[in-house]
Structures are given as C-alpha cells and as structure tokens.
Simulated scan of single mutants.
Amino acid sequence: MKSSATAQEVARLAQVSQSAVSRTFTPGASVSEETRAKVMAAAAQLGYRPNAMARSLITRQSRIVALVMSYLENQFYPLVIQTLSQKLQKQGYHVLMFISDLDEADEVMAEILQYQVDGIVLASTMLSPSLASSCAASGVPIVQFNRVADTSATARYGTNAVTSDNRRGGAMVAELLLARGFERIAFIAGLERSSTSVERERGFNEALAEAGHKVYRRAVGDYSFEGAQAATRALFAAEGLPPDALFVANDHMAIAAMDVLRNELALRVPEDVSVVGFDDVPQAAWGAYQLTTVVQSVEKMVAATVELLHGQMRGDAPPRHVVVPCELVLRRSVRPPANASGAASD
C-alpha cells in the first residue's frame, strides 16, 4: 500500500520550499497567491493532506479551544456556540465542546488538558478555585463567558471574564415598568448563585428603590423552563392582588411564564400582566410572544472573548473583565403608557 504523500514531495513537485507548503496550509500565514496555487495543485495531484496533529507537535499549538457548558436548554447558548465556532474557525481554530454538570466542571478539566488545548471558554458553568488553579498551573488561558466568579481565586489566578452589563440591564427594566405606571412588579430569579441573575436583580432592585418602590413578589426559576412555570404559579397563587408586571431573569423562563399566564391562569399579556425578559433569543420575537427584553449582544461578547483569548495566548495582555453594554428592545408583551393610543412598537 502506497504511503501518504509528504510535504517534502509536495514542495518538490510545486518547486517551492517546504516552508512555503507549511505556510499554505497554516490559517492566517502569509503566502503569495501564485505560490498557494502551485502548492494546492501539487497537493491535489499527490493526494496530500496536512497532518494537524503532527503540526501541533512542532508548533506546540493544537489550535483547539475548549468550550465548557453545563446546559443548552437556554436558547441563548446555541447562538453562542455558533458564533464562537464560526469566528474561531475563520482564524484557523476549532472548538471542542465539553458538557458538564453545573457544579462539576472540575471533573472534565483533566480530560480537557489531555487535548493540549490553546484556550478554554467557560459558559453557563461555574469557575471554582480548583479549576482556576488547574488552568493557571497548565498555562492555559481561560475566559468566563457570561459569568463572573466572585472568589479570591479568580483574581489570584488571573482569569478573564466577558459579560453584558447585567446590572444596568436590570435597572432599565425597572425604569421601563415604573414609567409605564406598574405598581405590583414581581421578579423571577435564575440560579441564586449565578452572577448573571444576581447582577440583574441587583440593578432591578436599586432602580426600584431609587423611585421609592420595591419588588412586590419574588420567586426562583433556576433558569429552567419547568422552574419558571412553577415560580409563576406560586407568584400568582399568593394571597392579595396579583402582580401587574413580571420581570424574568432570562427569555427562556419568560416564555415559560407567559405560557402559564395565558394557558393556565387565563390572563392576558400585556393587558392583565406585562412581562419582560433578558437575552433577546430568536424566540422572543416570535409572533406568539413578542417579548420585550434586554438584548445581550452575542457578536460583541464573542468578539471580546476571542480577543481576550488571543491576548492571553500571546502573553502580552493582563486579565480583564470586559462588560458589554446592553439595550432594551420594546415589543408587545408590555402594556403601553396610559396616555398612548397603541401598543408598543417593535
């Protein structure tokens, strides 16, 4: 059986140097179009395919970024996977995804490091001190995506983070609902220990307090569809007047809440109860929901994540926490002002 063609054979046939062959098959490397054409023609004739594993042994770079996630139920994270993968692939990197239980990211670390990854992105999972320590010891850059671990280990081991301005986003929701004249504003939290939920609720509460208000009722949905359904039932089963507005810590739960309000409790959205979410997943704009929500820019967050990874790989950038501004998009799940003649615009 004939052995596979080598880079040396391609170089001889194309009448170029072996380094030119290497540059041709290295994403982002500088090579003239004439040389590239010669090399590609020779490679096709010989049936040559570059060996990425062999190249990684020479360069000591795998060009693999590990993405660690705990769940994909929230429609926000498939968007993150798609955008991050596409951006890295254009730069010659590939994403290797690992799924771990929420509090068990540490258990996959040994497996991740076996692949000699060039960087790690943690999304929808928690960063523990031991995980931060493992990454620091291995010299592998790590970026927390949409999470910030409030631990001394995070600062000690120099991890990066990219989040949207969750605190300001929560405040914008409170300001909107107060401006629309709502009095009994309820809140459904995500995971109690999640920095996203904590910051969104903090900004929400601060803005309410500044206006002399406070949350009317509160429940926890754990960032799950079923949890949000149960939380909605609990909020509206309590004694006294029901809430007239509901802020939900993400769109995934907000959609679940709207289903319960309409289908189980026979309440109209927004006439009886107005609902606001957070994320702006594609489903939020569907005709059945038309959910007013806070937009997290996946594109900007992913761009910042990749920039941080590259800076850490080069070793010329200090660890940073990048906060991406967010904005409020108005749809039809919030009742317009009393003096308005129509529904809120899209």
Rank of each mutant, 00 (worst) to 15 (best):
A317I: 05
A340K: 09
R156G: 00
D244C: 04
V306E: 03
N205Y: 01
S128L: 01
G240R: 08
E175M: 01
P318M: 11
F187M: 08
S164M: 13
T159W: 08
D279Q: 04
R200E: 11
E264D: 11
D103I: 02
T293K: 09
C326N: 14
R49S: 13
I185D: 09
I142H: 02
V329W: 04
R193T: 15
Q283M: 11
S128H: 05
S133E: 15
V148P: 12
A20Y: 06
A254E: 02
T292I: 00
V298N: 10
V334M: 08
L178D: 11
Q61H: 12
L176S: 03
S164W: 05
E175P: 04
L291C: 00
A41T: 12
D272R: 04
L131W: 04
L191Y: 03
L309T: 07
L84C: 12
Q290H: 04
K2L: 15
Q290C: 03
R193C: 08
S62N: 08
F25T: 08
A211C: 03
N205G: 05
P50N: 08
M126S: 10
A123W: 03
A37K: 15
G227K: 09
A136K: 15
G342D: 14
Q75C: 05
R200P: 12
V281W: 01
E183A: 14
T6K: 07
F187G: 03
A110E: 14
S17I: 10
Y216A: 01
K214V: 07
R12I: 10
L46Y: 10
E199L: 13
N51G: 07
R332M: 13
A338W: 06
P337F: 09
G190W: 08
A249V: 04
Q290N: 09
K87G: 02
